[in-house]
Design a protein around this nucleic acid. Structure first.
Length: 187
DNA sequence: AGAACGATTAACT
DNA sequence: GTTAATCGTTCTG
């Protein structure tokens, strides 16, 4: 019997990003197993919270255990889970899921793509789960969110983050080893 | 005020 | 491998 890895929203975003691999995330009953995450922090030049609180990133400076939703490239809605003490500005970007529940609704939202690409990337996760600005700032421990920690400690691989120009060398992207549902392979 | 830039994706060569 | 789409935020003058 192995104790479930509890999700600690009070700790660092790097620790939470690692612990989230293998956890199950649902929004209105639609979602799956988290297979890829990235950590961001106020001391991190690549983070939206680096310049301090503003209208867009306010949720990152709100209470831990809540959602931070932002618009990416004017097109996509991406979901983060806020951690650390309120006011700090740290969070974890959900980059990919292995779809397990609500497949039909995901296929309707995502259009004609193979199931492997339903949630392989932060923008795709947002679209498949129906994430909107209305989810920004909502608590993760009640509807429409459902978050279940991984039953066993997952086999996690680490690598540099994707799509950033600052602090590219920081190994703050985490994935489930061998998963075919990640947005990109790990070296 | 205007230009440049994204925590991206889909389509194309 | 390259590139267009698309729009709020940030940088520059």
């Amino acid at each position: 019997m192995v104790a479930p890895a509890a999700l600690d929203f009070q700790g660092s975003s790097v620790d939470l990003a690692r612990a989230l691999i293998g956890a199950v995330l649902l929004v209105d009953g639609v979602g799956g197993r988290i297979v890829e995450t990235e950590a961001y922090d106020a001391e991190d030049p690549a983070s939206h919270s680096h310049r301090g609180p503003d209208a867009r990133n306010a949720s990152m400076f709100g209470p831990p255990g809540h959602a931070y939703v932002y618009r990416s490239y004017g097109i996509h809605w991406c979901l983060n889970l806020v951690c650390r003490e309120a006011g700090h500005g740290a969070g974890v970007l959900i980059r990919a899921l292995e779809p397990t529940e609500g497949l039909d609704r995901m296929r309707t939202r995502r259009g004609p793509v193979v199931d492997l690409l339903l949630c392989a990337g932060p923008g795709r996760v947002g679209q498949a789960l129906g994430i909107t600005p209305a989810h920004d700032g909502l608590p993760l421990d009640r509807a429409p969110f459902e978050l279940r920690p991984a039953a066993l400690r997952a086999d996690v691989v680490v690598g540099p983050r994707i799509g950033i120009s600052k602090a590219q060398e920081m190994p703050w992207r985490f994935g489930l080893r061998g998963s075919r549902f990640v947005s990109r392979r790990f070296p």
